[in-house]
Design a binder for these strands. Structure first.
Lengths: 235, 235
DNA sequence: AAAACGTGTTAACGTCGCTACCGTGGACGT
DNA sequence: ACGTCCACGGTAGCGACGTTAACACGTTTT
């Protein structure tokens, strides 16, 4: 086995059994039967090792659940994504604590990946006319509340007695940023300018729109984001 | 000045200017011009010192804002309490990181105090018939989301550009656990059994209710809590 | 007056993250 | 085939950390 993956596995093993999310590089080196310089050559830093371990664990977790995504209802995907995220936190408390604990100067790539996944689902929601705000704002709102719930669950097990607790916050936040589905397919202009702007913003293609220059498209995109985050629904 | 408060002030000063929420006991001792054993005699442990510092800072913050509480609208108090809490986090990022960072075996008393304050407001909401759930459940929901938002704001300053962000999550969660006020004073039985149960539970006095024994009252209290956390509103 | 006690200092221990230094083994040019 | 270079891992050590034994001083009690 590669030295790098041996260190990675040893660190993950130690981390998952540690009482508090803190492991010493010496213990990792001893468990991997490797000298200290090998570790520092591979990961540069203790923080580099920890972020690599977290990224590795999160990637594995994602690989085991990928087929669950992308159903026909993006709002349902949103809820499933929430439950998956919280489930990862409960199953790997120390990994999750490291992921969202302050102190790491560079947030692990896993957190950025989770944010990206959430944003992707939210853009599908916006494309279906189901979003009240810009996908970016909704992603920040959902991610913050979700991380707060997950951290509460992993740090204060007294709360976990209420199994509905996470679902309640989930539905509260998701219902605040989405609009209910209507029977006849896509719902245009329902919910005022904010929903329309969010929908249009999601439907815009990647590059410049046909009759507009690139600068104009960028400005339009910014205005749509601002419009979709304005709660005035009565023009 | 007392040695204990001198250490406390030095630690608070160092903590507020530290780049990451971690200070060394040696630096605290040097700043307070005190030997190390004095610190350990006063606080027993580094964790004891940190919790004392956090409690001290939170207490001071609370003392400066106490008159804002307890208006005539408890739901408005809820929102004000949320903004105060997030404001404390933004003003004292390192204190807040310590307050809600995992790794401390015993959570600081400040966190328990914040939870108690929130619960107090929520019980006033329930007494006014404005709560959909039990105060305990609502407190857990609000506290988790609030801590998540606050930690996002102090840990990832890129989000703080959106000044409305905290208010959006706040309104989403608060509107999910409360019912809107009605014109004619108290609103009995509006919103189904859950609201009625929460209201009754909040209106019950501290000790045993007159025609019931103490055991019966305890059981009634437990049933009311369960009822108020059941989302079935159609009997 | 003497003993007991709380409280501070000096000096040290063990562990941590990290690194300068050196040895080894294979790639590569001649 | 042989010498040179270099990526790579091991040995030993540095400085900083949290923590604590041993001792010194002032106050209080007997």
């Amino acid at each position: 086995m590669d030295v790098r993956t041996r260190i990675l596995h040893a660190a993950a093993e130690l981390l998952s059994h540690a009482p508090e999310a803190d492991i010493s590089t010496r213990a990792v080196c001893e468990a991997a039967r490797v000298g200290a310089p090998a570790l520092y050559r591979q990961f540069g830093d203790k923080e580099g090792l920890l972020t690599a371990v977290v990224d590795y664990g999160f990637e594995q977790y994602l690989a085991g659940r990928s087929p669950a995504c992308s159903s026909d209802d993006p709002v349902q995907d949103l809820k499933n994504g929430w439950d998956d995220h919280v489930g990862f936190a409960v199953d790997n408390p120390n990994h999750y604590r490291l992921m969202y604990s302050p102190g790491l100067s560079a947030p692990p790539g896993a957190a950025a990946e989770a944010h990206r996944l959430l944003l992707e689902i939210l853009e599908r929601c916006a494309a279906g006319g189901r979003l009240r705000t810009s996908p970016q704002t909704a992603a920040n709102m959902i991610m913050s509340a979700m991380a707060g719930v997950a951290l509460s669950l992993v740090s204060r097990p007294t709360i976990s007695a209420d199994t509905e607790f996470s679902g309640r916050v989930r539905d509260a936040v998701i219902e605040a940023v989405t609009v209910p589905a209507v029977a006849g397919g896509r719902a245009p202009a329902y919910g005022g300018t904010a929903v329309a702007a969010a929908t249009l913003g999601a439907l815009l293609p990647e590059g410049p729109v046909a009759p507009l220059t690139e600068a104009e498209t960028g400005l339009l995109r910014e205005w749509l984001g601002r419009l979709s985050d304005t709660s005035i629904t009565i023009a």
